[in-house]
Design a protein around this nucleic acid. Structure first.
Lengths: 241, 241
DNA sequence: CGCCCGCATTAACCTGTGTTATGTTTGCAG
DNA sequence: CTGCAAACATAACACAGGTTAATGCGGGCG
């Protein structure tokens, strides 16, 4: 098991480093590690999980299953993301989290969440910070689904994913490894797979990107971000739990 | 200024009552009150507000303005809702909050938010609880915008609003007072006003509801909730800040 | 090597929702 | 009461995106 002082996420510049005290606390707070294979479910809708996770490696989707089987991908999960707050706080997950690649995660116990609030207000504050950022991001998603057309939506999603993967240092001049399929992108954007494919072709035709066999290359990030309605600024560094 | 011990929201059964200690703390934490007229902006996108609010009376919308002027209503604001967490935690609002009716709100200072985490972990926990519930609700909205057609969307929104107003005790056998216009409903659901009107007519034609002159009456809540993909259960009681 | 299978692509056709336009009702000011 | 503006309703037409189906293609495996 990796020691929190040697946490591989800490090396990534997109995360705030732990203070020495935080390392001491996190070491005690961390309960273990777990791995998941593609397709496996980390947390499932309706479940009262007593485990919370921080993703160390790998990718996943958060998705909501409707009564009749339709599926909405609420967002994509990347290394550094904290999972299970809903079950941790509200008691029950309202969405599922499914691995799309092999994953390695830190495991925490739900029963100890309260300790964090009682003993480590700065860590509790960070947790709420994470929840607030998530809330902002979901709001942006709502605006995208409600107001933007297919081209803008696809541009938005790919720009956001590319931005996040780049911030994680997972990009090269050859682009980034994109771990999601068009089908998942479609489910995230409320589009059919067919129309998603059409739309990606259009963006390719516009000379904005190349996406082939799991590799995404941005040929013109600036036009892409403009089309997506996003600013090009670097995102703020975020805390880790 | 109303004393927290006499807080009118406390009488509503949908909220958890304050403990005596909480009343003492909230009295000190509360900084004042404010009122807003319809159309006034409580918090605006991009602003670094140093004030946080709890709604005592009245209704509002949270909305995101796109670069080109399109507007997405992210959700509706009701008495008991806490406003400004984004600016409070992240530093900057990513959406605006606009009054649709006259409002009265409690005011808190952003600079004292940290005191709450340091001195009152149970209040901090409640705050995070609120953020988690909000997050769940936004996820449900994403699923609705991404997967459901116009009829289901309108049914969902009206059912949710009706449910919330009823829980607040604002309903009679004659229905509830619905403070939002079709235009706002359309902006919340990503529909045109014309199609929203058509769709409400369809629901009326199906004998599910009557909505006239700001009054909404549910004629068949069960069918309505089924159509909306919602369970009929009563929501859990929520904490107040 | 060749077969199969999952994924992406492309095409033809259909439908739900947007757009534009006109009319109706309601509430309010004078 | 009259006039006016805002909200809502209805109709006709246009188009983005869904659906269905057929085709291509790269990768793993016998």
């Amino acid at each position: 098991m990796i020691d929190c002082a040697a946490c591989p996420l800490q090396k990534r510049s997109m995360f705030l480093p732990f203070t020495p005290e935080e390392i001491v606390f996190m070491r005690a707070f961390k309960h273990g590690e777990a791995t998941f294979q593609p397709g496996e479910t980390l947390l499932s809708q309706g479940e009262r999980s007593d485990r919370l996770f921080t993703v160390l490696e790998g990718f996943a989707t958060r998705s909501i299953q409707l009564e009749d089987g339709r599926r909405q991908v609420v967002n994509f999960v990347f290394p550094g993301d904290f999972l299970g707050l809903q079950a941790g706080i509200m008691g029950e997950m309202r969405h599922s989290v499914q691995a799309t690649t092999p994953m390695r995660v830190c495991v925490f116990q739900r029963s100890r969440l309260w300790d964090l609030f009682r003993d480590k207000p700065d860590r509790a504050y960070d947790l709420t910070w994470i929840a607030a950022v998530e809330e902002h991001f979901l709001g942006e998603t709502i605006a995208t689904l409600g107001q933007r057309d297919a081209t803008e939506r696809v541009a938005w999603a790919l720009a956001r994913i590319w931005q996040r993967l780049s911030a994680l240092g997972l990009g090269t001049s050859d682009g980034v490894h994109l771990p999601f399929r068009q089908h998942e992108l479609a489910d995230a954007l409320g589009l059919s797979t067919v129309h998603t494919s059409r739309t990606v072709s259009i963006l390719r035709g516009m000379g904005l990107l190349v996406w082939k066999r799991g590799r995404l290359n941005m040929l013109d990030p600036e036009r892409m971000f403009t089309l997506a309605g996003l600013p090009m600024e670097r995102e703020e560094r975020r805390p880790l739990i």
